[in-house]
Write a protein that binds this DNA or RNA. Structure first.
Lengths: 250, 250
DNA sequence: CGACTGGTTGAGTATGGTCAACTTCGGTGG
DNA sequence: CCACCGAAGTTGACCATACTCAACCAGTCG
């Protein structure tokens, strides 16, 4: 279930301050389950839950045909589809508080890889559903998370199918500022937990192209970067503009 | 709600044999609702349902913030995201029996366009959910359709992000053979209801590239084409092979 | 049968990929 | 605290895949 580090990954430990192994299950309960449903459902769910602690670079694989729900209690992860030996597609990034569904369809294998120290609570999908299916509020909450995932995936299709490299990068940064940015919306800061390779594999580009586009956006005064991962968005409107988020004029 | 034909579309009527305007709602009920749930839910759902008949080329738009469920009673449709004036991304194709969810997120507008004469039954999403949310079986069925849509969308991301033009076309044809093919699996035939432009807009390519790849696959004896839309898959295994559906070796 | 749309084929181009050198970051150890 | 080292990131030169522009062909409908 928990596979080793990815091939080209020398499991460099980034956990100097290893966090105490607090049980993440209560966090799952209060984040995902509506309060009235929690008392009845938490025990049976706990019975089928598996808690997994991953260090950055480690991966969580699912067996074929055994799809799972995964709650990210802390940390950050990428959901990766293996297209072939040297081709990976990052299908989605997920952060603390997210609940995602993973399956491996016939065409490709999928796995979840931690971008840093990450704690997961995972459930076999069918067992999970049979426990919560009778609870309308929980099913509705689940459903809404699914809708959000589908919407994000559709937007990613637009990006991958019809946008230039620069539009993809600009859109990516704007999205990340929205999802994990700190500070006000006018000058958000982001600490990107993913590498340039992860970004490239997410946007259907190469690391070189990602790097070049970062440089261009920097030159255009839209962003500032400090170190490998810190990005300051100087001009969010300008960034959104370059993302090609044109709405069709009616 | 029902907009006119798309810009470059001279609403050429393809309905010589106009089908009788049979009420498609019962078809929705028996296809989507589990039998035990139908009697209780059908009446309130009918009250909020809107039936729409579209000719090929006509589109169904949703207002912003008013997401809908759409059941395709007959025909075929493409779900399109408008990236900008001359850039459209086909996010998904849907056929008779499919139930889909459409929303227009902040970044882009979405619309559903009929590929031929098509009958829809549509519902405002929130009203739909409040009617069915208490019925576990229906919610589960809905949920599974959502999972399927998400899975397909993820697979599309892989295709758009990490596959060559030929791999995309081969994968597309294999998928279509599976979804709307007739005849045995060894020599399936497909009548593609979508134009080369639709295919191009779905795969993130141009019509010329689509055409060239069709020609190459034809030259490689993997497919035969008759007329604009009829495709005969001579070698499904070979096609799947060229689709780059490599599973990671364990 | 003729016109028109959609599809195919060809020639040249551009965006992003590849290959390679170099720089910076950041973590470790002297 | 600074020097060192490996990995990650950046930049440049060149190349390839798919796009653009354009002409031509074929299927379909009137």
């Amino acid at each position: 279930m928990i596979a080793g580090a990815l091939p080209a990954q020398t499991a460099r430990m980034t956990n100097r301050h290893r966090s105490p192994p607090r049980d993440p299950f209560p966090h799952f309960v209060e984040t995902v389950l509506p309060a009235p449903s929690a008392p009845a459902l938490a025990p049976p769910l706990r019975a089928i839950a598996q808690t997994v602690a991953l260090e950055g670079g480690q991966t969580f694989r699912i067996e074929r045909g055994a799809d799972r729900f995964v709650f990210i209690a802390s940390g950050a992860a990428k959901l990766v589809a293996l297209a072939s030996a040297r081709r990976e597609q990052v299908v989605a990034f997920h952060f603390a508080g997210d609940l995602l569904w993973i399956a491996s369809p016939p065409a490709h294998d999928y796995l979840l890889a931690a971008l840093a120290g990450t704690t997961l609570v995972t459930f076999p999908a069918t067992a999970f559903i049979s426990i919560v299916e009778s609870d309308a509020a929980v099913m509705k909450a689940l459903f809404e998370r699914m809708q959000q995932a589908l919407l994000r995936s559709r937007e990613k299709s637009v990006s991958l199918g019809r946008k230039t490299a620069q539009e993809r990068i600009a859109g990516f940064l704007a999205t990340m500022a929205d999802r994990i940015g700190t500070g006000d919306a006018l000058g958000p800061q982001v600490d990107l937990p993913m590498s340039r390779r992860d970004i490239a594999d997410s946007l259907g580009l190469t690391i070189e192209t990602v790097s070049r586009q970062f440089s261009e956006l920097r030159a255009a005064q839209l962003i500032e970067t400090h170190g490998r991962s810190h990005v300051r968005v100087c001009n969010l409107a300008g960034l959104a503009d370059r993302a090609g988020h044109a709405r069709a004029p009616l």
